[in-house]
Design a protein around this nucleic acid. Structure first.
Lengths: 232, 232
DNA sequence: TGTACATCAGTGAACGCGCGTTCACTGATGTAC
DNA sequence: TGTACATCAGTGAACGCGCGTTCACTGATGTAC
């Protein structure tokens, strides 16, 4: 009985916490992250503004939670889409990854901007975000690694990195033993994909590209070719 | 005497107008565009907040002026850097363009974000920005066009576009007669360059890339190769 | 050149608003004996 | 099972702040005759 009632309270708490984040997401979708207001969120939930502070210590803590959620939502969407493709179809895996990043961004523009857009003024992202932030890069690293091992003998021994930083070697286990130029090409591909999606989302292609779907597909195919990943 | 005194007043007005924009830029550099405050700008200039409205009808009008200025500042910087390279050195022209975009962004991060970052909530860019916004793409188009004409016979007749939009054909005269795939590859290169610069500026490469300069250079060289533009 | 008038930069007070956060509190829910 | 106590969700009022914009105004600068 003890733990049952205990979890009842805990569950209620968790539910309200989710309500707060859902309301914040909805508000963000309308006005952007910078305009996110604690009082507005509380009002929306029929709660006093002071009640909010039972759940988050500050507005910044809410922002952090939203950022982590956004990284995780994008991450699991991308992982799901990529996992649905046969392991040996490396081109298909890349295209699925790219497409799901774009479609998630289109469906959640403000959450995408929260995470990949210009930083929210006066907010500094804490360390907790790095794990969730690595999920999409991890998927890409997996594709690159599989491609490398499929086309090369397993030549072990870590190359001397001078361009890469520590986090990528420690954080992305799949890429162990893969030469630096291959990895930097992968990082570039990730930046390119991000640039492509952001450019479209922020309206820099309006008037320039009449068929964004076709442009995106052909662009991703070109990037794939440059990664050495071709349709089978 | 008439026109002399007239221009005296007009010059004073123009000077104050520049002061306002300079102060706004400085404030933006500290807190971001979303936090830009009319009262703060006026205070900084020792002017009453209502005095501001002698110069701009609203905060949005100031933002618009700042956006146009930012596009023009970036545009003239890039034009200058690109023009300093010999016309026949297409690789050098591309690298100069890319490098100057990056260095301008590093020197003016908030102005870069104002223009290429997530849109300021509640602000809609008016038509006046499209001219200045096209300056960098125009430089790129010039490089691409020169490269095309250097490597191909002048095969006239416009191809049937289905991916490209109207603005690019009308706005960028240099690319007349160049096949669509070449142009879309150029648009992609522009998006890639933007992605690369933004990724670095917004901190997504921290920990991943130890030597950002080297990574940027090698990345741009790769993009050049994909454009078919090689060092001579 | 002098005078009457119009233009316009700049002021100070005010309007009405929303914000993040704190604090002392009320009551309901859970806990220990 | 019942009672005394602790925990904790939620409230309402308040603090102190800054915001964009308007309005009636003062004086200096420029214009027309």
């Amino acid at each position: 009985m003890e733990s049952a009632t205990k979890t009842a309270r805990a569950r209620a708490r968790a539910a309200v916490l989710e309500d707060i984040k859902a309301s914040a997401r909805q508000q963000m979708a309308l006005c952007g992250a910078a305009a996110l207001s604690v009082r507005h969120v509380a009002r929306e939930l029929g709660m006093s503004s002071s009640g909010f502070y039972r759940y988050f210590a500050s507005r910044d803590e809410l922002l952090t939670a939203l950022i982590i959620d956004a990284y995780n939502a994008l991450g699991s969407e991308v992982e799901r889409a990529e996992a649905a493709v046969g392991r040996s179809d490396l081109f298909g895996r890349w295209m699925a990854t790219a497409r799901s990043v774009r479609s998630w961004a289109a469906a959640h523009p403000q959450e995408y901007a929260l995470v990949f857009g210009s930083p929210v003024p006066g907010y500094a992202a804490p360390q907790d975000t790095v794990g969730p932030a690595a999920r999409v890069p991890l998927v890409l690293a997996g594709i690159l690694a599989d491609h490398w091992h499929a086309t090369h003998e397993a030549a072990a021994g870590s190359s001397d990195d001078h361009v890469l930083g520590p986090k990528i070697r420690e954080g992305l286990s799949p890429i162990a033993g893969i030469p630096e130029p291959v990895i930097t090409r992968g990082v570039l591909a990730w930046a390119e994909l991000f640039g492509l999606v952001s450019f479209e989302l922020y309206g820099h292609l309006v008037g320039t590209v009449a068929d964004p779907d076709a442009f995106f597909t052909s662009s991703c195919e070109r990037i794939a070719a440059e990664l050495g990943v071709t349709p089978r």
